[in-house]
Amino acid sequence: MSAAPLAAAAGGLVLPSTARAAASDYRVRMRERPLEPVSYTYPSAIAGLANELPAAPLVQEVLRNADREAVANPGGWAKPTRLTYSFGWDPSTKDGTTREWYPQGVSTSYDAYQGPLPGTNTDADKRAVLVSWYAKGASLGKGARVTFVDVTAPSRPRYRHVLLVEPKKSAGEPYDFSPVNVHAGGIAWYGTRLYLADTRGGLRVFNIDQMFQVSTGGAAARWCGYHAGDKKYYALGYRYVLPQSRAYDNAGAPLRFSQVAVDRTTPQPSIVVSEWRPHSQNGKAVRWYMNPETSSITSEEAVEERRIGIANVQGAVSVNGTYYFSVSDGTTRRGRLYRRPRGNARDPYGYLSIGPEDLSYDGDRDGIWGLGEHPRKRHVYVVGR
């Protein structure tokens, strides 16, 4: 695929004159079962869980049952350039301060549907933001979660955490699941599927319409999966779980799947994977086309690769051929937003929050969503383009 030239290099940010078709350099391979030998597939295990658990809830149900209240447009923080909207996590919880969970990825219902959530009932036209987190410290081993935030009424955002799980089945045992222990550095919500960056593995995929409700009493806080003692399913206290349905393994040239974002401005919708390289400007942004009918990647081979030319990139998104990159600058200084090909290759396009992470473009706002990861600096926000 031919691509428009990038901006000329300047100030040490060396960029190629063109992006190039990746041929078979960067590839992914889809699989529907774990890497170890097993007798089940992810879809078959999910079908087995469906026979044991309440009917899978829709995204609208999770939003309707949001149990935490975010704070719209809070003050008292180092705000990004061109800020148009923001929210902070519920102050009555530890979401904004905990060192056991760190937010990383962001995607929205615009990524998924190029507008609000579909439907004809009273929950139609909802707009949602999804944020991924990974467990750390005392919660290490508790996997990764995704937060569903209802921003339909921007002044009253509400949200709920959902645990990501890997379904499984052992011979003679009930269908089960366990936490998904990945960094969750980026997410891309496209159609009915949620793509999760698995740094060295590739992309894990979750069918957004295959969530399950589990028990929240008894052993809920300490157990994940089937509990033989009372024959119930628990999820470390979470009410909903979202099981993995497939994966796209890193099958070509070595690539760090650090972040992932949807691009609906290409002739065919696509996703862009970008690399975090803390001491190198040689990180790549690599693109695959998507199938709008199945929400899947169309082929193994990537259709474009670009050398980023900036170190320490935490998030990347492409809009009408222009790339935007978030770059962190420690725990006390605001991060920076770079724009290519327009803009000076040496200077940032503006500032982001302290500790910026993943990016996501919202065409309804013509803005870019971002977020901060550090305790007490965890705002989710939109900046204008």
Rank of each mutant, 00 (worst) to 15 (best):
G202R: 08
D362A: 08
R33N: 11
I310L: 15
I187M: 00
P103W: 00
L164E: 06
G201T: 09
R342Y: 13
S353N: 13
G202E: 06
Y113R: 01
S274E: 07
C224I: 07
E166I: 14
Y102C: 02
F206Q: 08
A55P: 01
A197M: 07
G343Q: 09
E373Q: 12
P292E: 00
L242W: 06
S353F: 06
A251G: 01
S296V: 09
R127K: 14
D249T: 13
P348N: 03
K377H: 09
V28Q: 10
D358M: 09
A66V: 05
E293A: 15
K231N: 12
N73I: 06
R193M: 09
V205A: 05
G218Y: 00
V71W: 04
E173C: 03
L35Y: 07
I354A: 05
L164D: 06
I208G: 00
G384D: 13
P91I: 09
G355L: 05
W288A: 02
S170K: 14
S295P: 08
D123I: 02
A188H: 01
G384K: 15
W369M: 03
S107P: 05
W369D: 04
H183K: 10
T97S: 15
P254I: 05
S24T: 15
I310A: 07
Q104R: 11
E36T: 12
